[in-house]
Structures are given as C-alpha cells and as structure tokens.
C-alpha cells in the first residue's frame, strides 16, 4: 500500500489565522468591496459565500474513485440535511447550526489501542494529505446527492492509534451539548449520537475522515468540523461533528439502531434488494433530478467493499 507522507503545512497555516477565524468579517468586507466595484453580490449568504470561495484548502489533490457524475449544487448540499441535533426538518440544520462552535475542537481516540490520544483539529488537518473525494451519498429515506468531500482515509488516523487485536469495532460519538446543538433538548434519539463500523470497514480506503466539502471547511450543518463519510452505507452511518473515536470489542450500540432496531441495522449497507420495512429502497431521487433512478448495490462501490461481506446474508445483517 502506498502511504503518502502528510504535508507539513496545515491549511489553517496557509490561510492567515486571523482570516480563518474571522472569515465572516472578511466576507462582509469583501462583499462591501465588491458592491463598491459595482458587482452584484446581493443575496449571497455569508456562510455559503465563505465556502464558495474555495480557498480553505488550496492545492487539493484530486482523490481516487472518480464516479463521473455531476456534483449536487452547493446550495442543496448545505440546505437539505438530516442532522437531528439541529432539528428534524431538512431545512432545520442550515437554519439552526449557527450555534455550533467548530473551533476549538479536539477528537479523543481511545479504547482498545496502544496509543490513545487526543487530537487537536489543527493536528488532524495536517495528519495526512487532504484530497477531494467525490462520493455518492444515499440517504435511507430514498434520496441521494453527489458531494465533493475533503479529507483523507480514516485508516491514517486509526493506524496511528495502533489498535489492539481486541479492537473489532470502531465507535464514533458526536458532540453532546444542547447549548450548541439545540435539537438535543428533544428526546428524538438517545443523545449523544453514536455510530459504528467494523474495524475492517473503518480501515477500508473508501472510509473518509472528512474535514471539508466543496474545497473549504465543513459548514456546520454538514457535520463541522470533522466527520466520517462511508459512501457505501446509508447516510446516517456517517457520524458528524465527532468528539470521540473508540475501539471496542463489542458491536457499538448505534443511535438509530437503539431507536428502531427493526428498521436500522448495524450494517445498513445500501442495497436495492433489501427494503426498509416501510418503503422500497430499489430507487432513489437524486436531488435536482425529476425522475427516480435505480439504486446501486453498495451505492456503486461494490468493487471496493463487496468482499467485506462475503458469506453474510444481507437480509439478516441489514
């Protein structure tokens, strides 16, 4: 396996820190400047303007696994989200996620491993070379998007923790803070949100430790500042705003599985042949398209991941 040496320069160092942390002001100023220059900038939301500058992560290398499908517009990717920590409506996260403070942030890596430690966000940003990975995202509800994420394989982080032989699973825990995440005041799910993967799934090169999208840092509503993306599984398996990564011997009890075990299994691999008990998973609506398209086995990533599940009955391990 080819292991690329991480870049020594964190993107946060390339972008002047003052700007990085006060980019809203920067955008306001830029907006004023542009307006003065006679450019039409009215109606541009500061947050979207920020990410659309695309200057957060310069010189991103184009990542592996190109799919040759058009990316879903930035506006849709950042305004149509399932992130119950900010409300159960699709528009709620974009509206309410302003209370989340993505800096300072750290992720604790712990559990069955030789080198547990706490990683500061800036350390994570330069832990490995950031690349752009354009992945399909298939929601369990029957819609899908194509999103240009920014990150590197989660395996990079896992290897540095030196997991023990007992480490059979990896558990991800989202931030628990009802002040920052007002949706946690409602007992829709058993907070904090917990997700998990088998360790071989977590080590698969497709599994992305994700720090950005559309060339810039993650907008809050998309799971800032750090999340995972597991493109062959339904969207809810990809934990957002992660504060803890833990190696366990037992299968983690995940949030949706605890909520409705008969509908949301631990594996939740995208599979057009295994229906959700209440609706079909055979087709999906790609956001921005009119008619539905057929859903692909493993969301089209069978070549990379099918071998992980040989001999397992997908109806039993759904």
């Amino acid at each position: 396996m080819l292991i690329r040496r991480p870049s020594d320069i964190a993107p946060s160092e390339i972008t002047p820190r003052a700007l990085f942390e006060d980019r809203r002001q920067f955008i306001r100023d830029a907006g004023l400047f542009a307006a003065a220059a006679g450019l039409a900038v009215t109606g541009v939301h500061p947050r979207s303007a920020r990410a659309q500058t695309g200057k957060g992560f310069p010189n991103l290398k184009k990542g592996a696994y190109p799919i040759g499908e058009a990316s879903t517009p930035f506006k849709d990717v950042t305004s149509y989200n399932n992130f119950y920590e900010f409300g159960t409506g699709k528009e709620d996260p974009a509206e309410n996620a302003g209370t989340l403070k993505p800096r300072p942030w750290s992720v604790s890596v712990e559990g069955e491993c030789a080198k547990p430690r706490r990683w500061d966000l800036d350390e994570l940003l330069k832990l490995a070379a950031l690349e752009e990975r354009i992945y399909r995202l298939r929601c369990v509800e029957g819609w899908s998007m194509v999103i240009p994420w920014v990150g590197y394989p989660l395996a990079e982080l896992i290897k540095r923790a030196e997991p023990a032989s007992k480490a059979k699973y990896v558990e991800f825990t989202t931030l628990m803070d009802p002040k920052q995440m007002p949706g946690q005041r409602m007992a829709v799910l058993d907070w904090p949100y917990v997700e998990g993967l088998r360790i071989d799934e977590a080590m698969n090169p497709l599994t992305l430790l994700t720090l950005g999208l559309y060339g810039d840092v993650l907008p809050n509503q998309n799971g800032a500042p750090v999340r995972v993306v597991v493109p062959w599984k339904y969207g809810f398996k990809s934990a957002k705003s992660i504060v803890r990564i833990r190696f366990t011997e037992q299968e983690p009890r995940t949030a949706w599985n605890k909520a409705i075990a008969s509908e949301y299994g631990f594996y939740s691999n995208v599979n057009p042949q295994v229906d959700h008990p209440r609706w079909s998973q055979a087709r999906e609506r790609r956001i921005g398209e009119f008619t539905k398209r057929p859903t692909l086995m493993f969301n089209g990533y069978g070549e990379q991941v099918a071998s992980l599940y040989t001999g397992m009955d997908p109806k039993k391990f759904f």
């Binding site: 506006k75 849709d76 305004s79 149509y80 699709k90 528009e91 819609w143 609506r285 956001i287 921005g288 009119f290």
Partner: peptide, 12 residues
C-alpha cells in the same frame, strides 16, 4: 414552485 422556493427536493 414558480420562484424555485420549494428547496432541494421540490417533489417531497
């Protein structure tokens, strides 16, 4: 609908 105000998933 006319003003594209139905969000990312208008049919839903």
């Amino acid at each position: 609908a006319w003003h594209h105000g139905l969000g990312a998933n208008p049919i839903e």
